Computed example of a mutant assay.
Amino acid sequence: MLGMLKGLWQYRHFVLSSIRNDLVSRFSRSKFGGLWMIINPLAQVAIYALILSNVLAAKIPGIEDKYSYAIHLMAGLLAFMLFSEIINGCLNLFISQGNLMKKMSFPRITLPAVVVGSGLLNNALLFIAMVGVFLLLGHQFTFDMLWLIPLTLLLAVFALGIGLIAGVINVFLRDVGQALPIVLQMWFWLTPIVYPITIIPEEHRHWFDLNPLYPIVDAYHQVLLYGKSPDVSALLGVSIASLILVGLALFVFRRASEEMVDAL
């Protein structure tokens, strides 16, 4: 573990330059450049907001703001998009970088580090755009929004643990690469992002306790929608699970590194 961290520190400039190059290359031939990364999710939110907030008059219970549903949706999407981007980025990472892994000697841990770094950068840019939309809608912020920093780090660690294990297994069993996007799609709809949990009958809400993503998304809603601090006790379980998961992922990754090169 310490060896991987040391290698990551020694190759930190490689990681940073790779993150920059990934961002530049993704939009190098586009006139709007990185704006597309922000336009796409905001367009989705605008459609939901127009239909549900205006046409169907959807509101979040306890909030009189006409656009409370749109803010609820944007907060949930901000969390889930980071989660899914890191997992999807790790899923085919070692397959797409197979030639690099075979020809060059470098700390392989830098590859998932680039994925996480790119995901965090993209998420930060999306957050800035969403803040602008929130202000246009007249939404007020509080200092509790600073909770987003540890929440984002927790979410990134949780996603890295899942993505790294899935990426390693996908090298040997390619069915994982086909199945995981379906699982993520189901996970999205089983998490209160598009809908508030209050529409679920109270006797069935305990099932959401089995969803480790729910406490994090709920914390995003508490911070961005209600302007309150999240329930730390509710996040304790997923925090411990995330640390155990990422530790297991790094162990599996280290043990399987050489076998992955042979399989690729």
Results as ranks from 00 to 15, higher is better:
residue 9 W to F: 13
residue 2 L to F: 06
residue 129 A to T: 10
residue 7 G to F: 06
residue 243 L to D: 00
residue 18 S to I: 01
residue 246 V to W: 01
residue 177 G to K: 07
residue 12 R to Q: 14
residue 17 S to N: 04
residue 14 F to G: 02
residue 26 R to T: 06
residue 243 L to W: 07
residue 87 I to K: 03
residue 223 V to N: 04
residue 222 Q to G: 10
residue 240 I to K: 03
residue 41 P to E: 05
residue 95 I to N: 08
residue 37 M to L: 10
residue 70 A to H: 06
residue 108 R to M: 08
residue 131 V to G: 02
residue 238 V to G: 02
residue 173 L to M: 12
residue 102 K to N: 14
residue 211 N to I: 04
residue 33 G to C: 07
residue 217 V to H: 04
residue 134 F to P: 04
residue 7 G to H: 05
residue 109 I to Q: 00
residue 254 R to P: 01
residue 201 P to D: 11
residue 112 P to G: 12
residue 258 E to A: 09
residue 72 H to I: 03
residue 220 Y to C: 06
residue 32 F to G: 01
residue 138 G to Y: 12
residue 130 M to I: 14
residue 83 F to V: 10
residue 29 R to I: 00
residue 239 S to V: 05
residue 38 I to G: 00
residue 187 W to N: 04
residue 219 A to S: 12
residue 111 L to E: 06
residue 133 V to M: 14
residue 199 I to S: 07
residue 204 H to L: 14
residue 190 L to F: 15
residue 214 Y to D: 01
residue 38 I to R: 05
residue 235 L to A: 11
residue 45 V to H: 01
residue 149 I to F: 08
residue 150 P to S: 14
residue 126 L to V: 08
residue 35 L to Y: 05
residue 130 M to Q: 14
residue 215 P to Q: 06
residue 214 Y to N: 03
residue 258 E to V: 08
residue 185 Q to N: 11
residue 161 G to S: 12
residue 231 D to Y: 06
residue 216 I to Y: 02
residue 65 D to S: 14
residue 155 L to K: 09
residue 107 P to Q: 13
residue 124 A to F: 15
residue 152 T to W: 07
residue 243 L to E: 00
residue 108 R to Q: 09
residue 50 L to S: 12
residue 39 I to A: 15
residue 248 L to Q: 05
residue 109 I to R: 01
residue 70 A to V: 07
residue 151 L to V: 07
residue 154 L to K: 10
